[in-house]
Design a protein around this nucleic acid. Sequence first.
DNA 1: TCTGGGGTCCTAGGACCC
DNA 2: TCTGGGGTCCTAGGACCC
Length: 420
Amino acid sequence: MIALVDVNSFYASCEQVFRPDLRGRPVAVLSNNDGCVIAANREAKTLGISMGRPAFENMTLMESHGVTVFSSNYPLYGDMSQRVMETLATLGASLEVYSIDEAFVEVPVLESDLTAYGHRVRERVMQWTGLPVGVGIAETKALAKVANHLAKRERDRTRNVFVIADEASRAAALAAFPVEEVWGIGRRIAERLARHGVRTAADFTRLPDAWVRKELTVVGLRLKRELLGEPQLALELTPPAKQMIGTAKSFGQTLEDEGLIREALAYYVAECGEKLRRQGSLAGHLTVYLETNRFREGDAQYVNQTKVRLPVPTDDTLELTRHAERGLERIFRAGYRYKKVGVWLSGLVRPGAVQQDLFAVDPGLHRRKVMGVMDAVNQKYGKAVLRTAAAGFRREQWKLRQERVSPCYTTRLEEVMTVR
DNA sequence: TCTGGGGTCCTAGGACCC
DNA sequence: TCTGGGGTCCTAGGACCC
């Protein structure tokens, strides 16, 4: 059996762990650049805060009801996530970390009372991390997702456990489960299914295989079988190496100056380079992406991207920066007000699998040492303390807005709480 | 005035190979 | 006048996830 464990309103709950004064009170967390509401606890949702909508649309509502609003604090959430996963690892036979706030846990075979097991998971995570989780248990991943949804319907958080263990409970759960809430059924597919009269998960499982295969590809077919209780998706115990590594972030304000955009780009390239080296891969291609603010209807719009093939796959930030700058040069057009620049590294390979280029110069051992030193210094003294000259000294002019960020309670010594 | 970021998987179609 | 079959690789685009 598989348990899907996820943290309730994860980001909001992380903030509340360190702010006991906010227990039982509405809390919301904003996206990067304080743009959209991306997390809200139940108290905030009850007030009508709309998730995924711009912060400014919700601000009046939030202020009038005393909602405490935070900017995203990913160092905090990442660290809390790791604590949750380590706790879950002590409870399951094996574990797939599915996202920052979710994991599939293989229930140990000797557990006979699944509901009791679910409660034990909930209680231990609460005791060890202070975070509330919901637990859904079933035979397959897709059914565990359904069970997890149903677990969250319980208003009483101490009862956020739901088990689909036999045919009768499976049939009952699917008959009452809207198809658009099924894992893997998004807005587009839900619309298409609705046109064919499919409204519940149970309706979906009754569609002929051939139709599902043709309309929704093998992905849809696998999903149908999972919902019927036939496992199609194994747990991924070791996270596979990433196939793409990228960074694309909005500027705090729109920019027209190519120089500033180039500096932001170089800064993002360095972030990607660090991730690339941590994974032990080399990138064969690099895509640069540039965009104006599509929400400003009066502005002239421009969006473009270009893919650069690297002569030899590399993980050297200086080399990557050089090619990224060339890419930007290709697509930059003066006269627009830009909102976002991004870079994606792809064609990732292991160092052993590299085809050498007869005419390319290997940046050599000393450059690899430079990168090693840069990573070590930044690991120890903080992000981008040591950076390339290309990233410049004008970050103030393009960096993200983050006006309501909480302390990094668990990852920065100077921000650790003092208790008297 | 203010509108997120970072990914994955699948398919179709074109270019190219022998 | 008639013009094959069996592939691979790459890219773009669409869908999805949290």
